[in-house]
Amino acid sequence: MKRLEQSNISTLLTPLHPPRKGSLLYHWRNIFKNIHAYSFFIRQLVRINILRDFKRSYIGLLWLFILPVLSVIIWILLNGAGIVEPGETGIPYPAFVLLSTSIWGFFAELYRSTSRIFTERGNMMIMARFPHEVLVVERILVHLIRFSIPFLVNIVVLLLFGVRFTWLALLFPLTLLPLLILGMAIGLVVSLLRVVAVDIASLADHGINFLMFLTPVVYAPTIGIGWLSEAIRFNPLTYLIGFSRDVLTQGAFYEPAAWGICTALALLFFLFAVRFFVMSEPKVIERLIDN
């Protein structure tokens, strides 16, 4: 068979698939370029993700409304049964828990879904070439949709509980951003570990679950139990979640200085995580075996 001379190769062709290197800025430009080029694919993936669960159900998307209503009812019942005094919550306890758990869920759910990119979409990744950042965007968009619909139900419930909103409440969606990038950043790092170091990934899953108990979510930040108070004080999520919650329900900023520091740290970690993901992600694909 005929074979090209080395000198001819370099004049006629260029090397494909060069290794990824370059500055942070270069990576980010690349990410946005890929997301733009594959925006229709992202739309399709989001559509599949949202509709798939409901395609076979008779009532379809109504489930998105029914589930939050059920969870509200459960919290009201638990409260009525006489839960331990959770500390000074400012607003009625069921409303406090409802809102806090849903903000916590915003963070934890995003971690959960980004950290499973390779296990849930690995099959697609080894069958076709497309930029994998689109899967991350898909997860975020699906997450936002899945979060916002039940959240609207929660707002109605908060009103029924007598919570009154101020204009500052309009800032609420913005205050979720630090939680979004933190959840995503941890998820991206763990997603790679879930392929090559399953034990660490499981540990991280349990760690996140456990973290919820060290965060004022089902009790107030002012709870006075020795070591727990200390843990709460040094837990960045105390500030990130408390800030969002208070902006919505009190029209006030919760510990703005600590919140600012935590947000800056979350941003730094996010930049690190994205770079780590972009640089290492191509190499773990061949390690995927259970597809």
Binding site: L193, V196, A197, S280, R287
Partner: peptide, 9 residues
């Protein structure tokens, strides 16, 4: 396989 993957990472 996984150990080398982690090592390379």
């Amino acid at each position: 396989n996984l150990y080398y993957g982690a090592q390379d990472l």
